[in-house]
Simulated assay, not measured.
Amino acid sequence: MQRYFLNADGVLNQHYQIIDKDDIHHIKNVMRQNLNDQFIVNFDNAVMVGKITEIADTITFHTIEQLDIQTELPVQVTIASGLLKNDKYEWMIQKATELGASKFIPFISDRTIIKVDDKKMHKKIERFEKIVKEAAEQSYRQVIPNIEFVKNSKALVEKIQSFDHVFIAYEEVAKSGETKSFVNALNSVEQGQSICIIFGPEGGLSEQEVAMFGGQTIGLGPRILRAETAPLYALSAMSYQLELK
């Protein structure tokens, strides 16, 4: 059953409207739904089944059932990653959303290749938000990951102070042959905590950045991963450690 997000608290046996143009187009023209068809709605406080009661410029639906489901990771994982060239960052956030990331912090690292100004970055963020929303709907997420751009590594340092854990994916750890740092780091994580994992762009993080961030450096296995692959590896490992074992 198709899933949509509505920024409101849901109550059973009440009527609501979907006003988002992309969602309306998807319901009408992609899914070709009709009166009395059903879909799942992620409200701010609950997940419910809605039955369509009117199709016009907006979609009106009636909540008929509350669902008791849990599709989120037991911890809140933020991926702070240096911006990547071409469409690699878009691909990464799409897949990372499917794997359970709760927030993305793109930043300009010392070794970031691409150049962006404020106007271009605003448009990029709008596109990123659309990508993660669609990925969250497709993967039956209960929340849409937030995206917050920071201009440089120094600004990122301020953002990471509030996390329970900060891990830095550093390729020099992997090159040294160390394979237990990530496992050991995850063993210290408790359910409900917030984690920020920092990844570099193409070329990785500089030594100065690693020292500046001050978190725990981790390796992601014996192989050196591409910048767009490393966050997905980390999220998969966390899912296994925290959800599947």
Rank of each mutant, 00 (worst) to 15 (best):
E207A: 06
K88R: 13
K180D: 06
G177S: 10
K159F: 04
I197M: 12
Q208G: 12
K95W: 09
L205Y: 01
L99A: 13
T97F: 03
F149S: 12
I105Y: 04
I168D: 03
V132H: 03
F213D: 06
I160T: 14
G204I: 03
N184E: 15
I147F: 08
A174W: 02
S162R: 03
P201K: 01
Y89E: 02
Y170P: 11
S162V: 01
E190C: 09
F199Q: 05
S139G: 12
Q193K: 05
K95A: 07
F213S: 09
S181D: 13
E148L: 12
K115M: 00
L99S: 11
A96K: 04
F107C: 06
N86P: 02
S181R: 15
F199D: 07
D117L: 10
K119Q: 13
E158P: 01
K85V: 14
D117K: 13
H165N: 09
V150L: 06
A136T: 09
F182M: 06
K159P: 05
G203M: 01
E172H: 14
T97V: 13
K130F: 07
I198H: 04
G200S: 15
S162W: 01
Q142P: 04
V189E: 11
P201N: 00
S176P: 13
G203R: 02
E148V: 12
A185E: 11
G203E: 02
V157T: 08
V157E: 05
S194V: 09
S109D: 00
R111L: 03
L205K: 01
V150Q: 11
T217Y: 02
I160S: 08
N184R: 14
G204V: 08
K123D: 11
K85I: 08
S194F: 10
D110W: 02
E172N: 15
K130W: 04
H165E: 10
L205M: 06
I144H: 04
T112Q: 00
K120H: 07
Q216P: 10
Q216F: 10
D87L: 03
D164E: 05
F128G: 08
T179L: 01
Y89D: 02
K159S: 13
K95E: 12
I108W: 00
R141P: 15
I93Y: 06
S181L: 05
N146D: 11
H122V: 14
S181F: 05
V183A: 03
K85C: 13
V143I: 08
Q191H: 07
S109C: 00
V143P: 04
E178S: 15
E178N: 12
R111K: 12
I147W: 09
L186N: 09
Q142I: 04
E209S: 09
N187A: 03
I131N: 11
S206C: 05
D164M: 00
K175H: 06
K133H: 10
S109H: 00
Q208S: 15
K124C: 02
I197T: 10
K130N: 11
A169Q: 05
I198A: 10
L99I: 10
E126Q: 10
F167K: 04
S194E: 08
K175A: 03
N146E: 15
H165V: 11
D87W: 07
L84C: 00
E172F: 04
I195L: 15
P145Q: 09
I168A: 12
D110G: 04
I125H: 04
V189H: 15
V189Y: 13
A211D: 06
I144V: 14
E158F: 03
P201W: 01
D110R: 02
L186Q: 07
V210T: 12
I125A: 06
E190W: 02
A185W: 14
N184H: 15
